[in-house]
Design a protein around this nucleic acid. Structure first.
Lengths: 344, 344
DNA sequence: CTGAAAGCGCTTACAG
DNA sequence: CTGAAAGCGCTTACAG
């Protein structure tokens, strides 16, 4: 709700720094210093300026700041459009919420760019053109060299989700490996003997890391990690097809770890269609803990990742770098946690 | 994928308009005219400039353009954070996709702002401060005066979803009324006799419009439109509770129109728990056609709205206004369509 | 701790 | 159809 908010009198002829200076009885330089939080300003001057700013409802012209200064006061969030939408939607909204939360209070704008196939050069030109101070990149596919390109151009860049083709570029990710391993161990602890997995597409690290974690968990229990089906994308349909494949190969399987809730939904359908009771005949564990996990039939046991925290952490990492902090951790992994419901 | 994309040689010392002018053998004014697509430029000059631009990989400094010109070349998408996240997530991602699609090729940046309770004045100051040329507003709640405030300040504004407290501000919405009416008629045509509805919260037009449509459809069939339960928010839990309430009031109900798929998921759970077979005992129709509608148990018959198209249309409407087009339609309604699956 | 002045890279009347 | 010049509103050395 916006209560009693008044539109500034006029639109264009805005209050300028000069008027603030006049009202505060100081020079433009001093006002500028106060605004930018620089030291070496007498507290008397500082106070006068703050008062004038509030009184006049002054809001600095960003374009002028950018042009005159070296900073753009702006970071970009780049999302690759060819990304599987399924995975992208809740993921994307969550990340965005985190980015915004972290940016709150800072005078930094967020511009959103979707990278469409074909205009990569435009995108790179724009990003490297001084319009933004840094870049956040999410939902990368395959060996996309974008992060490497940006980093090589000297633009601070942080990737969300381990990138496959960007060795050395800082990234933040959920701990997919350990989360998946926990899922596997849990199924083992339940006494399941033939445990399968549905893995995400091979061209995304998220799929591969969850697969690796599952394998490790299964192998450590001295069981065979051979029941692997790859889904072609993060959709219920793809999950359903993979499940059918697994049942064909091993009708006696009694558990499955599905590398994404959205695929698990499809897997549940297939199991139901084959007359398999969940969890009695087959235990199912998903990953992500989407909102719909709790209304799945039966409610889905899953590994929860905190997507909003992912957005926050990416932003924190980028802003810290922009602030000149040194020896920042290049890679950050966020812990996952298991949510036990009915399916396993 | 970004193949063979080269980072501009240096970051700061970018190509400037002046260099393009020199390379093309014309004045800065002429280059500016070409870039801005103004008439009165000889095709010879135009061509030379285009060539120079491509050769030098020139990308205009937006800050300078904004400062010198009157346009910001930038529009804002404002999302109110207090919005029910449930409804917001897929909705938001879809709208965003549409906005971006419509903006493709245009030299207009999209900045994202989430309005947090408490900083409305900051938000309004910023938006009205000449930083953006226009505003797109979505997921408004209650009588939020934000759109009115912006419009009164002379800032072109388009709202996504009929706003309750912004009389006269242009908006784009899905045709919730007719979609819901179609759902009601369909249930009637199935021979159902006691048809209920679960409506969204009273403070959002989307909930009220769908309720109105359902009422009209039911009344026209000369049936009682009295079985209404209001959900407190767009969540499965809220839908489940509303369904339980309806069953308590009318154990013999044989159909229910749920004003959002995400609530329908909860309603299905409640029906299942009460031993009601869907669709045999109770037919269920949802609204939205989220991806998860097809994997509901049973797969959900629903009214599909095209959220991406909503984003595109909002953007088109705003850009048309910015381009100075006159007599634009103030309100635009996008058609919905029924998707028949198993639940009804 | 403070101010006068130059300059960031464009657009826009103005004059031709 | 084209160019020279002023100016958009800040920041940043520089001098004090």
């Amino acid at each position: 709700m916006t209560d009693a908010v008044e539109p500034p009198k006029a639109r264009r002829p805005n209050t300028r720094l000069e008027e603030v200076a006049r009202a505060a009885g100081v020079s433009k330089s001093t006002v500028s210093r106060v605004i930018n939080g620089e030291p070496y300003v007498s507290s008397k001057a500082r106070e006068a300026v703050h008062q004038a700013i509030t009184q006049l409802g002054y809001s600095p012209n960003q374009a002028a700041r950018t042009l005159a200064g070296s900073r753009a006061n702006c970071i970009a969030l780049v999302v690759s459009e060819q990304g599987s939408r399924v995975l992208a939607d809740p993921f994307f909204a969550g990340v965005l919420r985190g980015v915004n939360a972290e940016l709150a209070g800072k005078r930094v704008q967020l511009v959103l760019m979707m990278s469409k196939e074909g205009d990569e050069q435009d995108l790179v030109n724009y990003l490297c053109g001084g319009h933004v101070d840094g870049v956040l990149v999410i939902s990368l596919h395959g060996q996309d060299p974008l992060p490497r390109t940006l980093a090589d151009a000297g633009l601070p860049t942080v990737v969300g989700g381990r990138p496959l083709g960007a060795g050395g570029v800082p990234y933040v990710d959920s701990d997919n490996f350990n989360g998946a391993m926990e899922a596997a161990r849990y199924l083992v602890s339940l006494g399941r003997r033939r445990i399968a997995t549905i893995a995400g597409p091979r061209d995304m690290a998220v799929g591969m890391d969850r697969l690796s974690g599952w394998k490790r968990g299964i192998s450590q229990a001295r069981m065979d990690a051979d029941l692997v089906a790859y889904a072609t994308d993060f959709t219920p349909e793809s999950g359903a097809a993979a499940m059918a494949d697994l049942l064909r190969r091993e009708p006696a399987l009694d558990a499955v770890f599905v590398g994404a809730d959205i695929m698990a939904l499809g897997a549940l359908q297939t199991l139901h269609a084959h007359g398999k009771k969940v969890p009695d005949d087959v235990a199912v564990v998903g990953f992500d803990d989407l909102m719909i996990a709790s209304t799945a039939v039966p409610p889905l046991t899953t590994i929860r990742q905190d997507v909003e925290q992912l957005g926050r952490t990416m932003t924190w990492r980028l802003m810290a770098e922009l602030a000149g902090e040194e020896n920042l951790p290049p890679f950050l992994l966020l812990p996952t946690s298991m949510v036990t419901r009915v399916s396993a």
